[in-house]
Write a protein that binds this DNA or RNA. Structure first.
Length: 263
DNA sequence: TTTCATGTTCAGCA
DNA sequence: GTGCTGAACATGAA
């Protein structure tokens, strides 16, 4: 479930289990995930005998710095996650990249294969290529308002647009709008500044608390939409039934009684 | 069997 | 050029 809180949780997991490790070999490489003309043999050769030295994150991307230096850049798609293995003989199904250390292993597992793997010499050239917007937990309120308020598209599509703000996906977009009392179809250009202030604070609150809870939905407050989405069907605040619509091709849950449409 | 799913990308259109 | 929409991608669960 990789949106910003999940990806940050994975980054911390990698910090714990991969930093300082020497890569003795890379195996189980699925070329479908390799981008930028990477090929399995070339990637394996580039990774071999390197040490993983640090990690960073921008939006939904994790950057693993390896001695050289180079940067192994991971995107977890819709179903990806890292898994550390004490015993390399027990490789999980759907492993798309396996980094072998001296005795242990790190698997990148991704059932649907929508994840992405890049290797870059530096992070800035990667950011120049992909041009993601500012990270959702780093952006200032002024920048947040500036980047959103001129858009004409529905606010939900805008906050999920990685080139506007990086890190928010379908589930957290619904949660942020739910807590901000904004209808997902509201036009960005019609939301007033005061409401943007609220949305900004709710965005930070939702993402920060989700990171603190290690993106474990079971630990989220009961009055969050995420604790309820797809299960209870009723708004955890007012009890009226949640509505399900499509916004920008994605399923949106919201409470029509509490979320105002700006149009 | 069909539909849907937390991801991005890109062709096509106004 | 800008900005937006919807289909496509790969796979499994309901």
């Amino acid at each position: 479930m990789p949106e910003l809180p999940e990806v940050e949780t994975y980054r911390k997991y990698l910090d714990r289990y991969a930093i300082g490790k020497r890569i003795s070999a890379a195996a189980h490489i699925d070329s479908y995930l390799l981008k930028k003309a990477l090929d399995p043999a070339g990637l394996a050769a580039d990774l071999e005998d390197r040490i993983i030295t640090s990690s960073n994150r921008h939006g939904k991307y994790v950057f693993l710095e390896i001695s050289g230096p180079k940067f192994l850049i991971l995107h977890f798609g819709m179903t990806g996650y890292p898994e550390y293995l004490e015993d390399c003989r027990d490789i999980p199904a759907h492993t798309r990249l396996l980094l072998e250390f001296d005795g242990s292993c790190l698997a990148l597992v991704d059932t649907r294969r929508l994840g992405m793997i890049y290797l870059y010499d530096d992070i800035n050239s990667f950011l120049d290529d992909k041009k993601p917007g500012p990270d959702a937990l780093s952006i200032s309120m002024d920048m947040f308002i500036e980047r959103l308020s001129k858009r004409k598209k529905p606010v939900k599509s805008a906050i999920m647009d990685q080139s506007i703000i990086a890190g928010i996906g379908n589930l957290y977009a619904d949660e942020i709008l739910f807590q901000s009392h904004i209808h997902p179809l509201s036009a960005c250009s019609h939301i007033d500044r005061e409401k943007y202030n609220i949305m900004y604070k709710k965005m930070r609150h939702v993402l920060a608390l989700a990171v603190e809870k290690h993106a474990d939905i079971k630990k989220y407050p009961q009055d969050w939409l995420l604790s309820c989405r797809g299960k209870c069907g009723a708004c955890p605040h007012c009890g009226s039934s949640l509505k399900i619509i499509k916004v920008g091709g994605r399923t949106a849950y919201f409470c029509p009684g509490r979320q105002k449409l700006y149009s």
